[in-house]
Structures are given as structure tokens and as C-alpha cells.
Computed example of a mutant assay.
Amino acid sequence: MFFILSKIAAFFISPSNAVVFLMTLGVALLFTRYAKTGRRLATLGLAALLIMAATPLGGALMAALENRFPAPPQDAPPPDGIVVLGGAMDEHITAARGRAAFNEAGERLLAFVELARRYPQARLVFSGGSASLTEARFTEADAAAVFFREAGLAPERVLYENRSRNTWENAVYTRDLARPASSERWLLVTSAAHMPRAMGIFRQVGFPATAFPVDYRTTGHIGWSLRPDKHIADGLAFFDTAAHEWIGLAVYHWTGKTDALFPAP
């Protein structure tokens, strides 16, 4: 039930979606006796849209997330295991085309393959099922296995957790599958902006890991975001991504699924 409610809520509280609804309501009211209220709502929505798409706010929110967990030093000891979280592949296109299809977070799997080659003795776990509200026959774990074959990584070397639909389930099911010993050192690979929430959840379920952030979207400096995007839609998508993580941090902490509001190293 939490998963279904979270998916529905995510659609309606997505900043760009909320702004569109606000502006639509405002325009609709222009043709009623509440025209004055409609003008205010439409103006407010337009102002919010411009702030999200054309100001440094999105970059500042994203950089704060990405800077939270630094990458481990090059001389760190070899890990006993490596976990990569799903969310980097389109399982539907992969199933239809027969070739691995990535989304913008594809660097997660590229980094995972590179680490697997660097540490041939490490245990490997891919965690990702399907985020579809309906039953999916082809999961992201299936899609990942296709990519691993294409990349020359033996799929049988990887343990596949294919039931999870969100980050909380990633952590719970991966813990139950890998059963890490307290003395083991595990790397957790996911997008840098997603890392604070992922680390907080993994700690909460009793699976301590070392952050290995990838898929950076900023240089780490707020000034980077002063460069406008070529398309307003790109700016909105960037802001939505950052806002999604901040909202997720708040909701997961409120529901007891992270160990802190803004987990830190």
C-alpha cells in the first residue's frame, strides 16, 4: 500500500506537475466569476515555473545532495561486496529490443562493471525489480543481466534481487539476499543525488555500506547552475529530480525509514 500511495503522491507533488495544475486551474477560473483568483493562480504558477527552470535554485538543491557523500579514496581496502541499485535501465525497451536500454542514470551500471573487474573477488549484487503498478514479467534485474552479457561480465557472477520497487525494498531485500557479515566492507553504488537517502535507508535496515556515488549532474559549485538550460523542459526536469530526493528524504525520515533527516558520512 505504501508503494502505491507513494507513486500516486509523487505524481501530484512533483513540482512541475503541481505548477501545471495550478496554472490550468487559474486559466479555467478566468472564464468564471472567480476570474480575479484565476489571474492570481496563473501568475503564481508562471512565476514558480520560471524560478524552477531558469534560476540557480535547482542546481543548489542538487549540488547539496551530490556533495554529501564523497567518493572513497583510491587507496581504500578492497571491498568484500558491491551493491548497485536499480533505476538506471528501461526494462520495457530492453525487453522489446533485446538490447540494454539505459536512462540518464546509466552510469550506475557502467561503474558497477568497472568495479567488478577491479575487484574480481568481491561479491556482486544488483538490486532492482519493477516500479510498475501492474505486475511486470520483465524486471530491471533481467535487463541488467542483458547488459552484463553485452559488457563481458558473467551474469552468473552477480546475485540478482528482483523484487524491490523502491529504495526501502532495495535495502531490505538486498540485506536478506546478501546477508553481509559485520566484519565485511560493502560498496553501495547509486547516483550521487540519491546517495543520502540510500545510505540512510541501508543503515536503518542494518546494512552498513560505504558510499560510492556516481552519475553526477553538477560540478559541485552552485555557480554552475547559473548557465541556463537550452530548453525550459530540461530545467524543470533537473529541478524535479532534486526536489524528488529532498521530498523523499523528508517522507522517509518521517515514516522511520532513514536514520536521519539528511544522512551524513
Rank of each mutant, 00 (worst) to 15 (best):
5 L>A: 14
7 K>M: 08
9 A>Y: 04
13 I>T: 15
22 L>P: 06
23 M>S: 11
24 T>A: 15
24 T>M: 14
29 L>V: 11
33 R>S: 12
39 R>P: 00
46 L>D: 05
47 A>W: 11
48 A>D: 12
48 A>G: 15
51 I>W: 04
51 I>E: 05
52 M>G: 10
52 M>K: 00
59 G>D: 00
59 G>M: 02
60 A>W: 15
61 L>A: 13
64 A>H: 14
65 L>I: 15
69 F>C: 02
71 A>Y: 03
74 Q>C: 01
76 A>W: 08
78 P>R: 12
80 D>F: 10
82 I>K: 06
85 L>S: 01
85 L>E: 04
85 L>F: 12
86 G>Q: 07
87 G>H: 11
88 A>M: 15
89 M>P: 00
94 T>N: 10
95 A>Y: 13
103 N>L: 04
112 F>P: 03
116 A>M: 12
117 R>E: 13
117 R>S: 09
124 L>T: 08
125 V>K: 11
125 V>P: 05
125 V>S: 01
126 F>Q: 06
130 S>F: 02
134 T>H: 11
138 F>Q: 01
138 F>I: 00
139 T>V: 02
141 A>H: 08
142 D>N: 13
142 D>R: 07
143 A>D: 03
144 A>C: 14
146 V>K: 05
146 V>Q: 02
148 F>R: 07
150 E>Q: 15
160 Y>V: 01
162 N>Y: 14
162 N>M: 13
167 T>V: 06
167 T>F: 06
170 N>T: 02
174 T>F: 10
175 R>A: 05
180 P>S: 08
183 S>L: 00
192 A>M: 00
199 M>P: 01
203 R>V: 02
204 Q>I: 00
206 G>K: 09
207 F>Q: 08
208 P>S: 05
209 A>I: 11
210 T>I: 15
216 Y>I: 04
217 R>A: 10
218 T>K: 02
220 G>A: 11
220 G>N: 10
221 H>T: 09
224 W>Q: 14
225 S>V: 06
225 S>H: 13
233 A>H: 01
234 D>M: 11
235 G>N: 09
236 L>I: 10
247 I>Y: 14
253 H>K: 14
254 W>R: 13
256 G>A: 04
257 K>L: 15
260 A>R: 13
261 L>K: 03
